[in-house]
Design a protein around this nucleic acid. Structure first.
Length: 650
RNA sequence: GCCAAGGUAGCACAGCGGUAGUGCACCGCUUUCGUAAAGCGGGGGUCGUGGGUUCAAUCCCCAUCCUUGGCUCCA
């Protein structure tokens, strides 16, 4: 006897149904069904039905159902495009996290204004309720058929598929007899089973993602199980736009960009304040963990970059300059400078680990199309540090760094995930050293009980690395912190220390950053908080608002008192209405507003309002200060204090 | 770099062959007012930059700079 799972409950199922549709006839009607899952694979309802086991029917509002709808919508898009532009070739049209896309071959690409017509044609196809029918063809037949249609990319896909997997048949899906596309499936049974479609944008994309290949015309779209689902998604996009750090940065006057220095931010007083506070938080954390500040120059000779390997491996991202007939480069990284500092003077094993930290400004020439607000810039500061240590100290040093990273992210309220990146194709050094380095990082992560995913081939050219990724408000992830093990550079720079045995050894070098780029980190933090920063980071922490002239004198006294306590306070004693003042400081995202009218002035108390709208009336000045003290910057722990804490990376 | 869209006052936008407009912000005056906008008046733009077409260009054409979305998601 078979079993069916339908609408969350189990039902016995008679054997012998030929298709999903037939099987459904035996079962109670519970909502819409567009496919079924059997042994982990999803099938469409027209496909031959299994004869054993449990079958789970898939509704449109399940993750699998949504994938089916979106994949089918991609096919409908392809049919609509072929109908409107018969000369266009189709390539691939996969489902992505937010919808789907389809890549076409079309001279000149598509224009955004073409989308309306295509969407209308898609609507016709949906309305026509075309049956989506699967057929299995031999590879030979498929190749011949698509060749006949002039669909050369499809032919390439089929031949590739056959060569790679060795399978001798492929599946195709028809819309009635009007349109056929190569596809693994599954699909909705009828085109009318797609409830809500929206084409989003056009873009260029390289065939198979490779710049050497032809540029294809991509159309992005999305589809949902209901009109409301689509509406909610579009609304969410609007909301995300409001949190965009570029918009908030402009509104709050935090930073600007100028053509005079493309992709390089100019921080205004308010933005620079927050930036500097974050920096000093990180500096204090560094010092607490035994790091020492150093400062190294921005421009260093080209020979140095040849020695470090950057010239050979990173040249296309570097800025060069020539002065006095000598070649220089602007540093894209701080490590060679720190190595020169290490090299000065004789080093004993007693001074290891040596932890050198620098808020080092680096310049990297990112390609023009990849820069984005603060997220990807060409000039930025890293909270960089290099730890020189013995091989025996590697694991304890990395553990210490993991603790710092965890404290910093948790304190600012971020969730993150961790990736271990292993040897890339373009690399230096022997395989044995790579083996050792990769194993050391993996061991340390496991010991710290941090979940991680291995990212093969994504390491730096000098060693493997651990990357920390933060999630922003619209689900994008950003690489921030990094820990990189380096067995190469110390040798290249002939770094040495004298060991207990009184002979010279080469130290190991660990590159690490916690925030990564302060610029990018600020961008993420702005979106994370939507501009509502914790009080200790705010340039203006509180605004005193008077109601009428009787309260002005007390307001000034209060400001003097708060400033003498070290708070950054604005005073609005203008003759605007209170509601207007509140609106102004609300939009400026000042966390606290202190309202003072005649009543308060007389009793020498205040009315406190937070930017989230909470109110407390009749607070004494001492009670107000107590409220503020609760918002102080979190205390920086010592390494020993964190070592005992239960690890977590949510 | 490549494909597409865009650049008009500090900000958000409208206008699109006959040399510029709205809202907010800013400045001035009036209003002394209890938790998201009181009223009136005013100043501010060589319409990204360079070239071309035209009697006339913010608008059309070419070039260029900058910004934005996309270029890993394998039928």
């Amino acid at each position: 006897m078979m079993e069916a799972v339908l609408g969350g409950s189990r039902h016995p199922l008679k054997e012998g149904a030929k298709t999903g549709f037939e099987a459904l006839k035996e079962l109670p009607r519970v909502g819409k069904v567009i496919g079924y899952k059997h042994e982990g694979t999803v099938y469409d309802l027209h496909q031959p039905f299994p004869t054993t086991g449990t079958v789970e029917f898939v509704g449109p509002d399940t993750p699998e159902g949504l994938d089916i709808i979106r994949h089918s919508t991609a096919h409908v898009l392809a049919e609509a495009v072929k109908k409107l532009y018969p000369q266009v070739q189709v390539t691939i049209g996969p489902v992505i996290e937010t919808g789907f896309y389809y890549d076409f071959v079309r001279e000149g690409g598509f224009k955004e204004e073409d989308l309306a017509a295509i969407e209308a044609e898609m609507g016709n196809i949906v309305k026509a309720r075309k049956k989506v029918r699967r057929e299995d063809w031999s590879v030979a037949k498929a190749v011949e058929y698509f060749k006949g249609l002039g669909e050369h990319y499809k032919v390439e896909i089929i031949q590739d598929l056959a060569a790679k997997s060795g399978q001798d048949s492929v599946s195709v899906y028809w819309h009635n007899d009007d349109f056929v596309d190569l596809c693994r499936g599954p699909h909705v049974p009828y085109t009318s089973d797609i409830p809500a479609i929206k084409l989003m944008s056009v873009a260029g994309a390289y065939w198979r993602g490779d710049e050497k290949n032809a540029m294809l015309a991509r159309i992005y779209g999305t589809a949902f199980a209901s009109k409301d689902g689509l509406k909610a998604y579009l609304h969410q996009l609007e909301e995300a736009k409001k949190r965009d750090h570029r918009r908030i940065g402009t509104d709050m006057g935090l930073f600007s960009f100028h053509a005079e220095a493309p992709a390089s931010p100019f921080f205004h007083p308010a933005g620079a304040f927050i930036y500097a506070e974050l920096q000093s938080f990180l500096r204090d954390l560094n010092r607490s963990f035994g790091y020492q500040d150093v400062i190294s120059p921005l421009i260093l000779s080209q020979e140095l970059w040849k020695k470090s390997g950057h010239y050979d491996n990173y040249r296309e991202n570097m800025y060069f300059t020539e002065v006095d007939e000598r070649d220089f480069a602007v540093k894209p990284m701080n490590c060679p400078g720190h190595c020169l500092i290490y090299k000065t003077g004789h080093t004993s094993y007693r001074s290891l680990p040596m932890r050198l930290a620098e808020f080092g400004r680096v310049h990297r020439h990112e390609r023009s199309g990849v820069t984005a607000g603060l997220f990807r810039v060409r000039s930025f500061v890293q909270d960089d540090a290099h730890v020189y240590c013995t091989e025996n100290q590697i694991e304890s040093e990395i553990t210490r760094i993991l603790e710092m990273v965890r404290f910093f992210y948790n304190t600012l309220g971020f969730t993150f995930f961790v990736e271990l990146s292993t040897r890339p194709a373009k690399r230096m050094g022997d395989e044995a050293v790579w083996d050792k380095a990769e194993a050391a990082l993996e061991r340390t992560l496991k010991a710290a009980r941090i979940d991680f995913k291995v990212n093969p081939g994504d390491g730096a050219f000098y060693g493997p690395k651990i990357d920390f990724h933060l999630k922003d408000s619209i689900g994008r992830t950003h690489q921030c912190g990094t820990v990189q093990l380096d067995f190469q550079m110390p040798g290249r720079f002939e770094l040495e220390y004298t060991g207990t045995d009184n002979t010279t050894h080469t130290p190991v070098m660990i590159h690490r950053a916690i925030a990564g780029s302060l610029e990018r980190f600020m961008g993420i933090f702005i979106e994370h908080t939507a501009g509502h920063f914790p009080m200790w980071l705010c340039p203006t922490q509180a605004a005193i608002l008077t109601i009428s002239e009787e309260s002005v004198k007390f307001a000034h006294e209060l400001r003097a008192k708060l400033e003498s306590e070290g708070y950054r306070v604005a005073l609005d004693d203008s003759n605007d209405k209170l509601a207007g003042k509140i609106k102004h400081f609300q939009q400026a995202k000042v966390p606290f507003m202190i309202v003072i009218g005649a009543r308060e002035a007389e009793a020498r108390v205040v009315s406190l309002r937070t930017s989230s709208g909470e109110q407390k009336q009749g607070l004494s000045v001492e009670a107000l200060l107590e409220e503020f003290r609760k918002q102080a910057r979190p205390a920086i722990p010592k390494p020993e204090a964190l070592a005992s804490k239960t690890p977590s990376n949510p």
